[in-house]
């Protein structure tokens, strides 16, 4: 009896919750979304205008090698080649952000299409698509990204391609799960009976339902992609030096780590911080878009 009774209230939330949800017309934007959304926007702005602000970051002066932060107006000091670290970080924002945002965007579009297609298809097509995706799951994502990037060769374009491929399966999986959740709802039945085509049903009926979950997930993926892109560049598979890119800067300055840790730590911290911005923003969006409420 204890089981029975303890389980009951959980099964039946107070009706007040429903009434209040119904009475609610607008949603309050959580403070995390304001702050971290602002920070994310700042990062995007940096990616756009960074190189212009930073000026020449390729040539350094050997007399100014490895200056301590603050010295001679170099806020974060200079690196092993005598280049201003802060300016290189600002200039590096563009390739770093491109190789994180673009793959998520590409994989988001392709993954959503695959996931919705699988979720709305018949049983056989569905399982063919999902088992194919499982093959990609068999490899750790990082290894797969490295393998693809190594096969394609270095450069930003190839980083974007390899990361896009790696990110498609998880996004498709989320899109598929969400599509399966809504596909047996009554409104889908009436949509099918309306005579609308499959594409129209997918875009106008399914997408509005799975969109919020995808946006939340993709936002957090940007954080992951930043780390992955940094990793690829660190391995020399990204932007070719001397052009700055955060991951490549770590690799570049590795040799000075012991005596002047700031030269390699600075880009590492920037990658970590930027990645956190998108992670927390994703969490905030989850609350804002009320993804969980829809899943009841």
């Amino acid at each position: 009896m204890t089981d029975l009774l303890v389980a009951s209230p959980a099964a039946a939330p107070p009706p007040a919750a429903d009434a209040m949800a119904t009475a609610r017309t607008g949603r309050r934007v959580p403070w995390t979304v304001w702050i971290f959304g602002g920070l994310a926007a700042l990062l995007v702005l940096l990616a756009i205008f960074g190189p212009a602000i930073a000026g020449n970051v390729v040539d350094g002066s050997l007399r100014q090698r490895l200056l301590a932060p603050g010295a001679h107006g170099h806020l974060l000091g200079t690196d092993g080649q005598g280049r201003d670290v802060l300016r290189r970080l600002i200039a590096g924002a563009r390739p770093s952000m491109i190789s994180a945002l673009l793959p998520v965007l590409v994989a988001g579009l392709i993954g959503a299409a695959i996931g919705m297609g699988a979720g709305l298809a018949g049983r056989r097509v569905h399982s063919t698509i999902m088992r194919t995706l499982d093959v990609f799951y068999a490899f750790p994502a990082v290894l797969l990204a490295i393998a693809i990037a190594a096969a394609l060769g270095s450069g930003t374009t190839n980083t974007v391609i390899s990361l896009s491929i790696v990110l498609i399966p998880p996004i498709a999986r989320i899109a598929e799960t969400e599509t399966m959740r809504v596909r047996d709802y009554d409104f889908m039945e009436s949509a099918r009976a309306s005579g609308a085509g499959r594409g129209s049903i997918a875009i106008r009926q399914v997408l509005p339902n799975i969109g919020p979950a995808l946006i939340v997930y993709c936002t957090t993926l940007v954080g992951l992609a930043l780390v992955f892109a940094g990793g690829l560049s660190f391995l020399g598979l990204g932007v070719a030096p001397p052009k700055p890119e955060w991951g490549q800067m770590i690799n570049d300055q590795r040799q000075y780590m012991l005596n002047d840790p700031q030269v390699a730590l600075a880009p590492a911290i920037v990658i970590f911080a930027a990645s956190m911005v998108f992670n927390v923003l994703g969490d905030g969006l989850r609350d804002l878009l009320d993804v969980r409420r829809e899943s009841r």
């Binding site: 009896m1 204890t2 009774l5 009951s8």
Partner: peptide, 12 residues
């Protein structure tokens, strides 16, 4: 808690 189940039964 001990009243529930012991003195009152619930059929949901």
């Amino acid at each position: 808690r001990s009243v529930r189940g012991r003195c009152i039964g619930l059929v949901p």
